[in-house]
Nucleic acid binder design. Structure first.
Lengths: 142, 142
DNA sequence: ATTTGTGCAAATCGTTTGCATCTGA
DNA sequence: TCAGATGCAAACGATTTGCACAAAT
């Protein structure tokens, strides 16, 4: 059954397995988008970007589904959401704990390789606990 | 002339001076918005918020003008723009170098009092220079 | 008199939603 | 079968823009 399941449609068996493991039904569009997303590592893309990429790869998906998928993947821990820009939302295929350069004027994100050491965080307001610490290094053309 | 200038309309002379110093023409709406903005220190507000505040203070300004003013103030170094949320844009009346707590589920910003020590930043990509480093500590109700 | 700012309404942009239809288990 | 997913188009919220009018120098 497992094997048949993975063969029900022409999807990449690896991606099918990966989605199942994440608790997501391996639908055609999720598998296709997953393949595009994780083809190379450490990508930063917006819904718009991924949608265009899908078109060029002849994968028919509506923009709404791209949004849904991106959020589902994020919920499943396959992606990380990054907001630096106010306007658009970026999704990072690198889920590990790391920080970003944001290239102003280009609206482009780049992973910071290596750790940034962060000193003690002053105690958060009463009754609050730290969920995460995001560091964005804004860079510009020198 | 300077004094007359500051008396041309019923605006707060201090704010008039402050705007002039920043290279901005002290129009009625800029003076009024400036007074609201800087009435108390270290505020974080959105265009919408400030617009409502203006209404309640019986200051007639259009939302478009609020946006314009916020951006002009930011350009003049009177405000700082903070994006953490993806949706809205916050303006911080505290222009000094500091970081923020972002209260998830409440969409509220709080200044981090005191410094956060940040270790060396790995060299940015070729031909790029660091413009600023933003740290956002996401907190949630414990 | 000239330049600059303002208000309004319409336009834009990214994102979400409602709902009928389709698909995977 | 049938919960869950998809597509489309309309709805949305935040922000911007175009342009006629008003105000500051």
């Amino acid at each position: 059954m497992d094997i048949d399941g993975a063969r029900n449609f022409d999807g990449d068996p690896d991606m099918v397995v990966r989605l199942r493991a994440a608790g997501l039904r391996p639908t055609r569009q999720r598998v296709e988008l997953g393949k595009l997303l994780f083809a190379c590592a450490d990508r930063h893309l917006t819904a718009e970007t991924l949608h265009e990429e899908a078109e060029q790869a002849n994968v028919r998906v509506s923009l709404a589904t791209v949004y849904n998928t991106l959020h589902q993947f994020t919920g499943a821990g396959l992606l990380r959401e990054v907001s630096v820009d106010g306007a658009r939302t970026y999704f990072d295929t690198n889920v590990s704990d790391h920080h970003h350069y944001f290239v102003e004027d280009e609206n482009r994100l780049i992973d910071v390789e290596g750790k940034i050491r962060i000193g003690a965080i002053p105690a958060p307001p009463e009754g609050m606990e730290v969920a995460s610490v995001d560091v964005v290094v804004r860079v510009r053309r020198a």
